[in-house]
Computed example of a mutant assay.
Amino acid sequence: MGPGMMGRDDCSWGPGMMGGHYWQRGDGTPVKTLDQARRHAAAFAHRLGLRVGEVMQFSKNFYAELETPSGKLATEILVDPADGDTGIEYGPAMMWNTDYGMHPRGQTRTRLSPDEAQHRAQRWLRDRGSDLTADKPDAFPGYYTLHTMRSGKINGMLSVNAATGAVWYHTWHGTYIATSEH
Results as ranks from 00 to 15, higher is better:
152 G>C: 11
160 V>I: 09
171 T>M: 15
164 T>C: 01
103 H>Q: 11
108 T>P: 08
75 T>E: 06
110 T>F: 11
107 Q>M: 08
131 D>H: 10
131 D>L: 08
95 M>L: 12
66 L>E: 04
84 G>D: 03
103 H>F: 13
17 M>F: 07
16 G>V: 00
33 T>R: 12
54 E>I: 06
34 L>G: 10
172 W>A: 15
83 D>E: 12
16 G>K: 00
91 G>I: 06
156 G>C: 08
167 V>G: 06
173 H>A: 13
111 R>V: 15
26 G>C: 07
3 P>K: 08
93 A>S: 13
21 H>I: 04
80 D>T: 14
172 W>Y: 12
82 A>V: 07
81 P>Y: 07
165 G>V: 01
53 G>C: 09
151 S>K: 14
26 G>R: 07
94 M>C: 09
110 T>W: 05
92 P>T: 11
99 D>A: 15
22 Y>H: 14
137 P>M: 06
24 Q>S: 09
42 A>S: 14
161 N>Y: 02
59 S>Y: 02
147 H>Q: 13
107 Q>L: 11
125 L>Q: 01
130 S>F: 00
48 L>W: 13
76 E>V: 06
9 D>K: 09
154 I>A: 09
159 S>M: 05
163 A>S: 06
55 V>R: 03
176 Y>F: 15
155 N>E: 13
172 W>K: 05
76 E>H: 00
42 A>T: 14
180 S>N: 10
180 S>Q: 15
77 I>D: 07
115 D>S: 08
71 G>Q: 06
171 T>G: 14
151 S>L: 13
4 G>Y: 06
18 M>S: 10
175 T>C: 01
97 N>L: 06
138 D>H: 10
14 G>L: 07
181 E>S: 11
140 F>S: 04
1 M>S: 12
70 S>L: 11
175 T>S: 14
167 V>S: 04
3 P>H: 13
30 P>H: 04
68 T>G: 04
163 A>N: 08
155 N>H: 15
152 G>I: 09
58 F>V: 03
72 K>P: 05
168 W>L: 14
129 G>C: 02
124 W>P: 00
24 Q>G: 11
168 W>N: 15
141 P>N: 12
29 T>G: 09
23 W>M: 04
5 M>E: 10
103 H>D: 13
94 M>K: 05
54 E>P: 08
140 F>Y: 13
165 G>F: 00
29 T>I: 12
148 T>V: 06
127 D>P: 00
47 R>W: 03
57 Q>A: 15
116 E>T: 04
46 H>M: 10
65 E>V: 12
62 F>S: 06
141 P>Y: 06
87 G>N: 10
128 R>N: 03
161 N>E: 03
54 E>G: 03
105 R>M: 13
169 Y>M: 13
174 G>F: 03
100 Y>V: 07
80 D>Q: 13
153 K>E: 11
158 L>W: 01
53 G>I: 05
4 G>V: 02
171 T>I: 13
29 T>R: 15
157 M>H: 11
180 S>Y: 05
65 E>H: 12
82 A>G: 10
123 R>G: 07
164 T>A: 03
160 V>F: 01
11 C>K: 07
